[in-house]
Design a protein around this nucleic acid. Sequence first.
RNA 1: GGGGAGAUGGCAGAGUGGUCAAUUGCACCAGACUGUAAAUCUGGCGGCGGAAGCCUUCGGUGGUUCAAAUCCAUCUCUCCCCA
Length: 404
Amino acid sequence: MSKFPPVNEQIDLIRRGVDEIIPEDDLVIRLEKSILSGKPLIVKLGCDPSRPDLHIGHAVVLRKLRHFQDIGHQAVLVIGDFTAMIGDPSGRNKTRPQLTIEEVRGNGKTYVDQASAILNIKTLRIVYNSTWLSVMSFQEVIKLASHYTVARMLERDDFEKRYKNNTPISIHEFLYPLAQAMDSVQLRADVELGGTDQKFNLLVGRDLQRDYDQNPQLVITTPLLEGTDGVKKMSKSYDNYIGITENPNDMYGKTMSVPDHLIAPYFECVTDINQEELEEIKMQLSDKSGNPRDLKRKLARVIVSLYHTKEAAIEAEKYFDQLFIHKGIPDEIDTYKPSSNPVQILNLMVDSGLVTSKREARRLIEQGAVKINGEKITDINFELLIDQEVVLKVGKRRFLKVIV
RNA sequence: GGGGAGAUGGCAGAGUGGUCAAUUGCACCAGACUGUAAAUCUGGCGGCGGAAGCCUUCGGUGGUUCAAAUCCAUCUCUCCCCA
């Protein structure tokens, strides 16, 4: 009696929502071998603790790691604390501030905390790559670097583009894929997971393992989730993300703001709905039998339920409906007590932090975006005398309860 | 080592002595509309001021000039070509 499910069941789960498996046929062989030997596969996922805030784009690959846990394999989360201390290789342009070891460790912990919403923390093995990378001598680094050629490095999409566009590439960036590959050697990884943008790095891992006489790891890439703007990949720096620690209302709202064409991909990559249901949704979208809005509502509910609770999702939906469909006022809004009474509307908006400058406040009033108790304010010199609490509304979603 | 080009607002990218708080695109904010914070359209998008106007901003510093993002010097960073 094996502790693993049958190979075909394992494969079905592993394949789901995956972009590529390299090499494809190796998967079966590995799985069969692990069943025979009773040894779980070592499945590696590296993470960058320099930005510890996880969003549902990260969740795609974390969920894949979870799948491996669910079928009895050994998940290893590599906290790239060493690499994070140096900077970021894919760094589109700016050098990131160097982090101290304490900061990185702290971030690593935050990362794990957040990831525990998705992973089974009990069986997860967590390692820090500084453990082996920080003790390498310069000589060893040179030896490591000799395993790869510049031409091969330049095959990497990102490097190639930057090279062609005359944007700088620092030498140490070439060391990144190698450092990451070293992690695989160190762990004797059977499988490494990553987003499609990681494909090159993951493949370097295979090459290096081969050089170290190891069986090269299987590379599995997951699609990059597009952000709420529907164009660029989800990323904190593009501000188009849905954070997994966000409150239910924001999470629901942000999900509702994604363009319609992302409904199916989101269902596929960030939720657990089964294949039949997914097909059904795709059908409804393509033949227009389902209202995209309703499907999106469902998506938003599912996502909020995943990171919070079902009840929270229902609450968030109510909140959303009240706000945007009935154009009402949410139940819970911040209260603010102005320092003077009566108070200038501009000062009120700025002092309460609703806007960042009087200029902006003025602009919003001129655009007719400011209301007090539902009544539009048109005079920028408006002076508000507060004898009872009133609700200040700016734009569609900024509310403030002003109290005496 | 030699020669050349460049650094502009969140990003991309114009501007090359006054008319520049700086064209445009993306992002963002608001309004209209709607099936949603989708799409589309319209407006806004450094700060203070009701406005006129003023203040700070075009890699850093110093200078020329009545006047500089624009000219000069120098520093920092980047790219290209030759060796």
